[in-house]
Design a protein around this nucleic acid. Structure first.
Lengths: 205, 205
DNA sequence: CATATTTTGTACCGTTTCGCATTAAAATCT
DNA sequence: AGATTTTAATGCGAAACGGTACAAAATATG
């Protein structure tokens, strides 16, 4: 479904790669402060090409958010490998997040969604929608693993999988914010460890 | 120290009230998307007056953040009234936060710092500094209460006050983000309740 | 009253912004 | 080859941007 030869002049650029470059600009500057000139320079695409391929600035931004969300969900599913203990799962989730969050030139970038979509969410309904869906999908995936943990006896019957999942997400949200505020890797890793401990405290093994 | 008569034409506006109006603009739109025209209209101040009273846009923004931070710390200190049980303290902290976060026309505003300063923190050092200081001050104040709880026996000797405090803050960060993402009051209150339960789980009384 | 000092309001400056119109170029289809 | 379709590049243009010059207005001081 990909190799149908299209008529007309073919693209000379890789749309997926361009999206990645644009994402990096948004990640550092945020949506509002990222100009089309910035995006054009970073992607090596003229403004009309950008416009033609992705639509206007908000469309482009939403595309990067959507791709980021998908990548995040893939990484999450991998980290939650059910053949591992719940504790390890959560630790892997946080470790994966920090590997992404702490990447940055001057200050750490944190999470693209929490770091840049949160501002725009109030006045841009489409951004709010992606952000909300991203958060709840994330919660949902962790909740599934929590339910499994209860079934397996990793967590006591009294555990509330939905709430435990939301609190596990809460620790990630905090890591995202703190990374951008300039907290050190050591601090963030300590918070992650404590979060695992608190949430999986009642887990055996 | 306030009533020294200044020479020259007196102000016709209340700087503190103007700061509050400006804060509301930043709160909804974020720093980058808030134009001087928006701020001028909201405060009923001409741009030169704004500039004269507060400096440039970033100066004004930093002033609003600082005032917000101070208000937050005051509210926090009040919520942590040590004559109440730790559980009640934390519940009051979250309730107070939600009362602020859920106030908004269309979508909830969340927290001014987490909602709008987080984006700018990467490239604006002064914003990052205020944000970092705000977060760590908040952690510190809760940590004090946690230490007291250990001394009093509300929490077991084995409890780690610093980490418990950071996790208590983490729940707040999550509430701030989720409010802006459009989560309902019911959802947020449920998360707050679960957070209290998890963090104070080992607390007696 | 005259002078100094500060605020206020109008108007403006140069820059940057986003989005598009237009034209040139490159590929496929007939 | 000629027509068609799609992409690429130049550049424009109207609007919005942050910030300021300037003069009028209002008060304190001498």
């Amino acid at each position: 479904m990909k190799d149908e030869k299209k008529r007309g002049r073919p693209r000379t650029f890789d749309a997926k790669a361009a999206l990645g470059k644009a994402r990096d600009v948004f990640w550092d500057r945020g949506f509002a402060a990222a100009s089309l000139d910035n995006l054009s320079a970073a992607t090596n695409l003229n403004r009309p090409s950008l416009y033609g391929a992705f639509g206007d600035k908000e469309d482009l931004y939403l595309d990067t958010l959507e791709a980021y969300r998908q990548d995040g969900m893939d990484a999450l599913a991998e980290a939650l490998d059910p053949s591992l203990p719940l504790r390890d799962n959560l630790a892997r989730v946080y470790a994966g997040a920090l590997a992404v969050y702490l990447h940055g030139e001057t200050a750490a970038r944190g999470c693209l969604l929490i770091g840049t979509a949160t501002v725009e969410a109030v006045e841009r309904e489409r951004v709010r929608e992606v952000l909300g869906r991203s958060l709840s999908d994330f919660d949902g995936e962790i909740e599934r693993r929590m339910r499994l943990a209860v079934e397996r006896g990793e967590l006591p019957e009294s555990a509330d999988p939905q709430m435990l999942a939301r609190l596990a997400s809460a620790v990630m949200h905090s890591l995202a914010v703190r990374a951008r505020a300039g907290d050190s890797r050591e601090t963030l890793e300590a918070i992650a460890r404590s979060g695992v401990e608190l949430i999986c405290g009642s887990a055996r093994s």
